[in-house]
Design a binder for these strands. Structure first.
Lengths: 346, 346
DNA sequence: TTGAAAGCGCTAACAA
DNA sequence: TTGTTAGCGCTTTCAA
């Protein structure tokens, strides 16, 4: 009876059988205790607990979820542009905070603008049987996850809406935010405005450009005459584009930049030309030390922490069986006035 | 014979048995194909592959690792101060890049300076049977992981050395970096220097203070007379401490700040007092836009990407069975000259 | 309140 | 080259 289970000390990780043997109970009783299930007398419970502590026993979640109804692994996959990107970091953090309450752990991975990687990483997550997916889509289409989505794998897209699949999404009001930037600059008297933006393959970049340009049109400006410089994906290309623009015959008196790195490039160009206090600038995306610049940089701030929190809420709702129709949730951006956007036209 | 396995379409996820049934082969043959094992004829392999694609089959890694020798899950746990902290983000990214080559996925979680959380998160990782752990220690002692470490769970500590356990660590040369800051300021003629630092419970903060002060002592300064303000954990407390220091009877002509947020607070105080170009400043940790400040901020830069890469290398070596004695690996910091640290004493 | 037996999806060991 | 059987550590089911 007592040597049903291996009793001697093991080098490997102890299992429930080891604990059961040490406590002198059946394996199912150990399972009940470890999972806080009812139906165990207090004295038995204590004996099991003591044995498990003595052996430093740790429940194997993976083995458990293999048999458990629902088969949840209490882990999700998160796909970000890059875990080293501060915007992504904020989203990640907000998600983590919301999911930690449920004991859900997060696999995080970086896409690096590589559509191939997107599919490979999703496959890697699926192979690990995640309970849900939070994805920043980058590939042309997300139709490849339709099979999983149909099998009810919870899925929330963030930052950009997915293409080719009808699923939940949480995004910033890019066009509205960009239009706010435009009307802010217009209100300060500018009539010669320029747009500097990221690559046009990026949906959010297109939305921001469109929102900006359309607002100028609504104000009666000839939108075809608005200088638009796109395809800027790093600081240096933005710096060069801004310099070129500012050196032209009819330079803009105000610039709107669609993204952090572009904003940095423009700031650098303005500084080099000694024009920081003469040319107005509004950037999309807030950043650390924006208020410490000279002048402070006026921005359209996104709220990554709200995006992350909302995405977590939607995901958890789906995990809990919510079957309402997929929807896109919009997180408003916010104009933060700091000086650079309030410079009048020269 | 043909109805050994369930053949009809299933709503749930398909298993190897479904693929085997569809391809008309045994389950082990499917296993061989999915794992790229030899001993399968090309024609069989193709049939299996086709069946698996048709069913959208995905290997269940967790189930596999339950039985597989070595029982690896191809996932590791990463504990960071916060995933939203840019320094942590860089480390995370470097780790991810190194581990992705091996198909290892990363569970990331944030500590938030909470020693309780450290233990809980490690337990959560262990319950998910990670193949290794990369940890930023924050609790007073890491002796609680000794059982796992003894069972050969690979483990690398980063940023700070662990206490109460002899394990691999990858850290910055904090004292040397701080001493470099001191000698740099001394070389520029300063004799009245001040130290503003983080909470003394943090090992790295203590090392930086010690390195800085000792270097001043080596140069013949009365170290007991050097103003030291510690316990600064955010921008605001640092700003106030700096203001107070600069308003004293005998204000310092140079300041060394031990950490990013402290540096920001000092920068703010200097700006408020119009002293940015009069008082020298060297900060520990590099940050975005440091070169865009007026003057640019001279820093002792850490190399998070190197820390992450080295940690990944050590972890993978341990996973592959490396048994050499645990050691601490030091990543040198680097002085980056930008202007604020080269201001002469007034 | 307790536990024995079956089986989750897979791989190891071995047989054909 | 292929397949069968056992069993990884756990939860479910059901009986005691």
């Amino acid at each position: 009876m007592s040597n049903r289970y291996q009793t001697e000390a093991t080098l490997g990780r102890p299992t429930m059988r080891h604990v059961a043997a040490l406590a002198g109970v059946g394996i199912k009783t150990v399972s009940r205790v470890m999972n806080d299930e009812p139906g165990v007398s207090e004295s038995t419970r204590l004996r099991v607990l003591e044995a498990s502590q003595q052996l430093n026993y740790q429940l194997d979640m993976a083995a458990g979820s293999l048999r458990r109804t629902g088969r949840q692994t209490l882990s999700i996959g998160l796909l970000l542009p890059s875990v080293s990107n501060p915007f992504s970091g904020e989203i990640h953090r907000a998600l983590e905070d919301s999911l930690a309450e449920r004991g859900i752990a997060v696999f995080a991975a970086s896409l690096d603008d590589d559509p191939q990687r997107e599919k490979a990483l999703v496959a890697a997550f699926l192979g690990r049987r995640v309970d849900g997916l939070v994805l920043t889509p980058i590939a042309k289409s997300q139709a490849y996850v339709i099979p999983e989505h149909s099998r009810d794998l919870p899925m929330v897209f963030i930052d950009r809406e997915p293409v080719g699949i009808d699923a939940d999404a949480v995004v910033t009001d890019n066009a509205v935010g960009a239009a706010t930037a435009a009307s802010h600059l217009l209100a300060h008297g500018h009539r010669k405005l320029a747009y500097l933006g990221d690559r046009t393959e990026i949906q959010t970049a297109r939305e921001r450009r469109q929102g900006f340009i359309e607002e100028l049109g609504r104000a009666g400006l000839a939108t075809s005459a608005v200088p638009v410089r796109e395809g800027l994906h790093d600081e240096e290309s933005a710096r060069l584009a801004a310099r070129e623009l500012l050196a032209s015959d009819d330079p803009p008196t105000a610039i709107f930049s669609s993204q952090n790195l572009v904003t940095f490039g423009v700031m650098r160009a303005l500084k080099e030309l000694g024009a920081s206090k003469r040319v107005a600038l509004v950037g999309f995306d807030d950043f650390t030390l924006a208020d410490m610049m000279e002048p402070g940089i006026t921005v359209i701030a996104q709220h990554p922490e709200r995006i992350g929190k909302l995405a977590a809420e939607r995901l958890v709702a789906r995990i809990d069986g919510d079957r309402i129709a997929p929807a896109t949730y919009i997180v408003p951006s916010e104009l933060i006035v700091r000086g650079s956007g309030e410079i009048p036209p020269s």
